[in-house]
Amino acid sequence: MAFLLWILAVILVVAGIVSLVRGQILWGVVLIIVGLLVGPGGVSIFT
């Protein structure tokens, strides 16, 4: 379960960075924040 959360977090953060590069600043920041919450935060909640 923790491994899947980390993979999801990495995908969200990468998508956020790509959005930032494309100029969609708000969407990119939201994706990065959600990715960080899912990764370290989600792992600590579910384990």
Rank of each mutant, 00 (worst) to 15 (best):
V43N: 09
I17L: 13
V13S: 11
A2G: 10
G23Q: 03
V14I: 13
A9Q: 03
F3C: 06
I11Y: 07
G39R: 00
V43S: 12
V10S: 14
V43L: 11
T47R: 15
V29L: 13
I45E: 12
G35M: 04
I32E: 05
V14D: 01
L20I: 01
A15H: 14
L26Y: 06
V38C: 02
L4P: 01
G35C: 06
P40G: 13
L37M: 13
I32G: 01
L12Q: 14
I32D: 02
A2S: 11
I33L: 13
V30M: 12
Q24S: 14
V10A: 14
L31G: 06
I17V: 13
F46Y: 15
G42W: 00
F3N: 03
R22S: 06
M1A: 08
G42Y: 04
G28E: 07
I33F: 12
V10L: 15
V30C: 05
G28S: 02
L4I: 10
L4N: 06
L26E: 11
Q24T: 12
F46D: 13
I7L: 14
T47V: 15
V38F: 01
L4V: 10
F3H: 02
V29R: 02
L26R: 09
V18P: 00
V13Y: 04
I11A: 15
V43H: 01
I32H: 06
G28N: 08
L36M: 07
V38K: 01
L8D: 03
V14K: 04
G39I: 01
F46V: 15
V38D: 01
R22H: 05
I33Y: 05
I25K: 14
V10N: 11
V13G: 02
L5T: 03
L12V: 03
V34A: 15
I17F: 11
S19V: 01
I25W: 09
I45Y: 13
V21M: 01
I32S: 12
V13H: 10
G42A: 02
G42L: 02
I33H: 08
V30A: 10
S19M: 03
A2I: 07
V13D: 03
V10K: 02
R22I: 00
V14H: 11
T47Q: 13
S19G: 00
I45N: 04
W6D: 04
I25F: 14
I11F: 12
V13T: 14
L12W: 06
V10F: 15
I17Q: 13
L8E: 09
F46N: 08
G16E: 03
I17S: 08
R22A: 02
V13N: 07
L36H: 04
V13M: 14
P40I: 10
A15V: 06
G23D: 05
P40M: 10
L5K: 01
V38H: 00
W6P: 00
W6E: 12
G28V: 05
I45V: 11
I17Y: 08
L36V: 07
P40Q: 07
G23C: 07
L5H: 00
I33K: 06
I32K: 02
L5C: 01
